[in-house]
Nucleic acid binder design. Structure first.
Lengths: 232, 232
DNA sequence: CAGTGGTCTAGACCACAGC
DNA sequence: CTGTGGTCTAGACCACTGC
């Protein structure tokens, strides 16, 4: 039992799809037919088909059959963390300020709260090899008794901050990426003297019920960051 | 059988994880225990656990048990297509030039080919509401008899170009995202007269065997694009 | 109606962990 | 050795599809 039977089923069918022998929309042999072809029980066939479905190769319509799926060519997976990216790692942070503020209109809207609610704002600078590479602002909903301890805030990523008060699983996140001309404040902190853009990454953290819990905006020197993604 | 039993198993365990009752590293009840708890057969329990594993909640170690996984807080899913993004849709394209060229060193390296191989380069402009919003270059490996028909090239996305010669499933893709000061050529084409950065998205298409098949670089006006991603 | 996929059972043997 | 998860079987009933 070195290689499971369902693996052979998966590879046989996948090969037909990759080679173009089976095209999107084409029907796969029915499960009972595959049972006979491979001489196995139906649960084994279904295990193989489940894997192909998970990989995005096929889908099934009850009562009709299994069909080759049109691949989603626009889907990418991207790994992002404010402190770590492919061309540099943040090795030092500097806490600029921590404030409890009333949100302006845009922020109140983003966090879906009243403008009279308190919000914690945390401004930090990220360094790599002694150079400032990113300016970072986080806005967190303020809860009474929330620990605002410098040590905890200074080196934490956004997820880590929220995870202090919430189970990490109960979190959804959204990213927004764009390029911008830096403001004077950011130019000052990032030692930008000439025409150099910043790459801005906004992270929004939401509860499973889609209630916003925090907003983070990180401004990277354009020459210090590249984000990578891959299909599948 | 409106709601399958395994769904109840999934939800029961997921609730324990979301609420923090079960923490990363904790063991789930063994499959046989769960069989007794829910009064079902082992295959049904395993079906439920398989779903939780697929969702990233748990993992299993043969001979030991099932355990709660530490969630991957850095993983995002991003949908990207040169022509379509959340704040604008390309409604017109202009083919600037199509050439067969010898690659320079960087390109030869990116495509993993000799500098004496032929490469097709395609330069295009993307428009939204009459305004140029992106400058786009594609480099494709040249195969004898490759159809270089203006009509086919003009409006195709990168994936569509490659799909002409390869089964779409047999493709892997890589993305690279960064911000840049536009070159004079790009400023000219994108009507940029002041200090405005471009967001650059490089797409590399690879065969399943990791052989590069093409490279696409799209330069977007910074004020005309935002990329969005979500966890899970 | 026959055929399809979706769910579920009650067994079985295996390889592996840990004692 | 016992207990664990991984694989597999040979049935079963269901809801749905299409004729």
């Amino acid at each position: 039992m070195v290689v499971p039977i369902y693996t052979q089923i998966v590879e046989t069918i996948r090969k037909k799809i990759d080679s173009g022998e089976l095209k999107p929309g084409d029907a796969i042999d029915s499960e009972n037919t595959l049972c006979k072809e491979f001489g196995v029980s139906r649960m084994t066939v279904r295990k193989g088909l489940a894997i192909l479905a998970q990989e995005g190769y096929i889908y099934s319509i009850p009562g009709k059959g299994n069909f080759v799926k049109k691949p989603d060519l626009t889907k990418y997976t991207l790994y992002y963390d404010e402190m770590t990216n492919s061309i540099n790692i943040v090795d030092k942070t500097r806490l600029l300020e921590v404030n409890i503020i009333m949100p302006d209109e845009k922020l109140a809207d983003d966090l879906q709260i009243s403008r009279r609610k308190n919000v914690i704002s945390i401004k930090r600078l990220f360094y790599t090899d002694g150079d400032p590479v990113a300016f970072d602002i986080k806005y967190l909903l303020y809860y009474r008794g929330m620990p605002i301890v410098e040590k905890e805030i200074k080196e934490a990523t956004f997820s880590e901050m929220i995870a202090k008060t919430t189970a990490a699983f109960a979190i959804k996140k959204e990213l927004m990426i764009y390029a911008e001309v830096p403001s004077e404040e950011i130019k000052y902190y990032l030692n930008i003297y000439n025409e150099l853009p910043v790459l801005v990454v906004e992270q929004k953290l939401l509860s499973k019920e889609n209630k916003p819990m925090g907003l983070g905006i990180t401004y990277y020197r354009g020459d210090y960051i590249k984000l990578y993604g891959t299909s599948q």
